[in-house]
Computed example of a mutant assay.
Amino acid sequence: MENPLKLCMESRFVVCRIVALLLIIAACTNAQCPFPCSCTGVTVDCWKKGFTSAPTSYPPNTEILDLSLNSISNLQGTEFDGLRNMLSLKLQGNSISSLPVGIFKDLARMETLGLHINRLPSLANNPFAGLRNLKTL
């Protein structure tokens, strides 16, 4: 018969290792969540966080990104690079004055794009090229 104290110590060790592994996985999952946004599943919520420029790093599995009601005035054109799973991008209620060529080039799956309540006097160079699945603008 095995020593009960030894079995208890071994069990605690295994539990501690499992907890440590879960904490590491959780930390890696949110590693690219822009501060002070909240990231839950495939949603990145940066609503009304006081941004003056859009963050440039998001979790790679992001499908819904809410950047509405900030003070974003300029977009460089690379903020959304690599977000190939994006379905919904909310940029309304900012001060965006232009959309750079290619800003949405990786967002072919996107269905919803919110741009109202910005300062877009006109849209040149077809910034929506490549948005094959866009249903709501």
Rank of each mutant, 00 (worst) to 15 (best):
T43D: 10
F104K: 03
P4Q: 13
S53F: 08
N85H: 09
S98G: 11
R109D: 13
S57V: 15
N74R: 03
M86N: 01
A108H: 05
A124L: 15
S95E: 12
P60H: 11
L5G: 04
P59N: 05
K49W: 00
C39L: 00
D81P: 01
A54L: 01
L65A: 02
I25C: 08
R109L: 05
F128H: 09
G50H: 08
P34Q: 15
P34W: 06
C8L: 06
D66Y: 07
C39A: 09
R17F: 01
N61H: 13
C28I: 15
L123Y: 07
C16E: 13
D81Y: 02
G82Q: 05
L134S: 09
I96K: 01
N61L: 03
K6N: 09
F104S: 02
C46L: 06
L83P: 02
V44H: 04
S38Y: 03
T56K: 14
L7T: 09
Q32H: 02
S68C: 06
L22H: 12
A27D: 12
L89H: 07
F13A: 14
D66E: 12
N85E: 07
Q32S: 15
P127K: 05
E79F: 00
L89T: 01
R119P: 03
T40D: 04
N70G: 11
N125E: 08
G130C: 03
V19W: 12
K48T: 11
L7Y: 04
I117N: 12
P4A: 01
R12S: 14
K90C: 04
C8Y: 09
A20M: 15
F35C: 10
K49N: 12
L123S: 13
F104D: 00
C8T: 15
L120Q: 13
W47H: 15
V101M: 04
T112K: 10
R12K: 13
S38A: 09
G130I: 01
F80Q: 03
V14L: 08
P55C: 07
T56Y: 05
A31E: 12
S38C: 04
W47M: 09
E79Y: 00
N70S: 05
L120S: 12
T56S: 14
L75S: 01
V15D: 08
S88K: 01
N61C: 02
L89P: 03
K135E: 13
L89I: 00
F35K: 15
C37L: 07
L23C: 15
S53D: 06
I72W: 00
L99S: 06
C33P: 13
F104A: 03
N133C: 11
T78Q: 01
T29Q: 13
W47C: 10
N3Y: 09
V42P: 02
W47Y: 13
N70T: 04
V44C: 07
C33A: 06
S71P: 00
P4V: 03
M9Q: 10
N85F: 09
S57R: 15
T112F: 08
T112H: 03
L89R: 02
L5N: 11
I103C: 08
S73L: 13
F128S: 06
K90N: 14
C16W: 14
L69M: 12
V14A: 11
